[in-house]
Amino acid sequence: MWLKSLTTANSVAIVVLVFAVVAVFYHYADSPTMSGDELPSSIYDFTIKDIRGNDVSLSEYKGKVLLIVNVASQCGLTNSNYKELNVLYEKYKNQGLEILAFPCNQFGGQEPGSNEDIQEVACTRFKAEFPIFDKVEVNGKNSTPLYKFLKSQKGGYFGDGIKWNFTKFLVDKNGKVVERYAPTTSPLKIEKDIQNLLQAS
């Protein structure tokens, strides 16, 4: 019965507290491997694997605006995010936008499939045309180096750890991480920021 007596404010406070605890955990889990000496100086220094296992150098994206997103196939945010990411990609891909999607199963086990399963869901069910990469971990000791770098450049509220699926990083044409957006920030709300970076010389 006490649950029914919680006010909206109390409910929000509990949610914030939970996120804070998770964030602190991931912050300390990442800390031993976050030495600046070990991190590349630019996003273009990274080579990553695509969903088929092929090596891809991020230097291939020099001069483009990048939106980097950790995705999941079974999240409550999946439908809306894929739909809006598709809208952005279709609208701006010929102007220099590239969306890089990184499947991750660390949040609620919502990306459990193989790379082949993920590709089928992303490209067939959600009609994604932007690049999908190898499934990665974005938090903890096994966090992929790219995400260690992204988090070191733009921390989040309550610590640097990624909080949930569909956290978004915006990277300018020079490879600088300029903004980080929460999972609940819809892609279309980022459109103006993308436009500004595309128009920048």
Rank of each mutant, 00 (worst) to 15 (best):
N81H: 15
K168D: 07
I14C: 01
A20S: 12
Q74M: 05
V138Q: 10
E179K: 14
I14D: 05
L197P: 01
K93Y: 03
R125I: 02
K154I: 08
Y89R: 00
T185E: 10
S42N: 13
S5V: 10
A101T: 06
R52C: 04
G63S: 07
A182S: 11
F102V: 04
S80I: 11
K93S: 13
A23I: 02
F133A: 08
S41L: 03
L66T: 00
V178H: 01
G159V: 11
G109W: 12
P187I: 03
E90P: 02
E60M: 13
L146P: 10
N81F: 06
I68F: 13
A29K: 09
Q153T: 11
E84R: 02
V136G: 10
T185S: 08
S114L: 09
N70S: 07
I48Q: 06
G63Q: 08
I99L: 03
S57T: 14
S31L: 11
L67C: 05
Y44R: 13
Y147D: 06
S41K: 15
L17D: 14
D45W: 10
A182W: 09
G96E: 02
A128F: 05
N10L: 04
Y157M: 14
G63H: 03
K163Q: 13
K127V: 07
Y61I: 03
E60R: 12
Q95I: 01
K176S: 09
Y89F: 15
P103V: 09
T184I: 08
S35D: 14
F169P: 00
G109K: 15
S152M: 10
K49Y: 08
K83P: 00
V71R: 00
A72K: 04
E129H: 09
D45T: 07
V171L: 01
I118L: 14
N86G: 13
D193A: 12
A101C: 03
G175E: 04
N165M: 09
G155V: 10
E111M: 12
I68L: 15
A101K: 01
S80H: 04
G175S: 11
V138W: 03
I132H: 04
L170I: 06
F102I: 06
T33Q: 03
Q106E: 15
R52D: 15
L150I: 14
K141N: 12
K62A: 06
V177A: 07
A200C: 00
K173S: 00
P32Y: 06
L198S: 02
D37Y: 13
R180G: 05
L188F: 00
V136L: 08
S5N: 09
S80M: 11
L3P: 02
Q119L: 08
P112R: 05
V56Y: 05
S186D: 08
F133L: 14
I132N: 04
F149M: 08
E84L: 01
V56G: 05
K49C: 05
K135E: 12
R180P: 09
G175F: 09
G159N: 08
K49A: 08
I194A: 01
L97N: 03
E116W: 02
F149N: 06
V15Q: 15
V121Q: 00
L17E: 14
G161C: 12
F46V: 12
P131R: 03
I190Q: 06
T8S: 09
C104R: 02
N174D: 11
E60H: 10
T33A: 03
K163T: 10
L188E: 00
A29E: 14
I132S: 03
L198Q: 06
E116V: 13
N139K: 06
G63K: 04
G156N: 10
